[in-house]
């Protein structure tokens, strides 16, 4: 019996050394938490976010409701390491345009990385002083379909609908590893005027803005839906978008803890 106990202790000691070595790369050993505005998202969308964030090695934290006041936004952001501002897909969407500004402001204020998707990407652009416009009105000659609904089924969301061209010197290019990639789509509006401090890093063949970045600040916006591309279509090349968000959050945390 005694021998068995000693053996177990030795095994535990040896394996814990190994564990310490593996996590030495990260000063912050706990799980990164990614905050997601859940109001205005359908159950299906939330399911895919859970999958994307978990498979990227982090924990999702769904904000209970819209941050109707600045204090609420501050409190939500204080509980997470990164922020995802999604598109509109269901539930109570009335507060999206009004209240998402508050969480975006809080994320920037607290220096936390942010990923905007579809409406979220447009809201980030608006926050930086840009504006959105109708795709049909601004790109009347386009023969690309940016929104494709057949009956009740949002086909555009669930297929590789059109290609986008990515700038080689962007974070998105580093993350996806491709200059031209097929994405899904579901939008009637797009970024027309780019906010100050942001740059366009991807466009569709008709010129519609498909992704923006603020390189000085860990902020990225994508017009397409990586959560459906990975979550629903199981296209592995899009998981790195979420992994990148998590890695950036981890880097911010390590910096906060004074470790280089």
């Amino acid at each position: 019996m005694k021998r068995l106990l000693i053996m177990l202790c030795l095994v535990a000691a040896v394996s814990s050394c190994g564990v310490a070595n593996r996590t030495a790369d990260y000063a912050y050993k706990g799980k990164i938490t990614v905050g997601i505005c859940k109001s205005g998202s359908s159950k299906e969308t939330l399911k895919y976010f859970k999958k994307c964030v978990r498979n990227a090695g982090a924990k999702p934290y769904f904000f209970e409701y819209y941050a109707t006041t600045d204090e609420m936004a501050k409190e939500y952001l204080s509980k997470v390491d990164a922020l995802i501002v999604p598109g509109k897909s269901g539930g109570d969407t009335t507060g999206r345009n009004k209240y998402d500004k508050k969480v975006i402001a809080a994320a920037l204020d607290q220096g936390k990385p942010m990923l905007g998707i579809c409406l979220g990407h447009q809201e980030i652009d608006s926050f930086y002083g840009g504006s959105t416009g109708s795709v049909k009105k601004n790109y009347p000659e386009s023969n690309l379909i940016h929104r494709n609904k057949v009956g009740d089924e949002n086909i555009g969301l669930r297929t590789e609908a059109h290609a986008i061209n990515i700038e080689k010197d962007s974070r998105l290019y580093k993350v996806l590893g491709q200059e031209r990639i097929m994405v899904n789509t579901s939008h009637n509006y797009s970024v027309i005027k780019v906010g100050e401090g942001l740059r366009v890093v991807a466009t569709a063949d008709d010129g519609v803005v498909e992704a923006i970045e603020d390189n000085s600040r860990n902020v990225m916006g994508v017009q397409f839906h990586p959560e459906y591309l990975y979550g629903f279509l199981h296209l592995k090349q899009f998981l790195p978008i979420f992994k990148n968000l998590v890695d950036e959050a981890r880097a911010v945390r390590s910096a906060d803890m004074g470790v280089k």
């Binding site: 209970e64 409701y65 819209y66 109707t68 006041t69 609420m72 507060g95 009004k98």
Partner: peptide, 15 residues
Amino acid sequence: KVIVDGENVGARTRA
């Protein structure tokens, strides 16, 4: 009572 930008949001805020 929580009024933000002229709208009564108190009922949808953990006030």
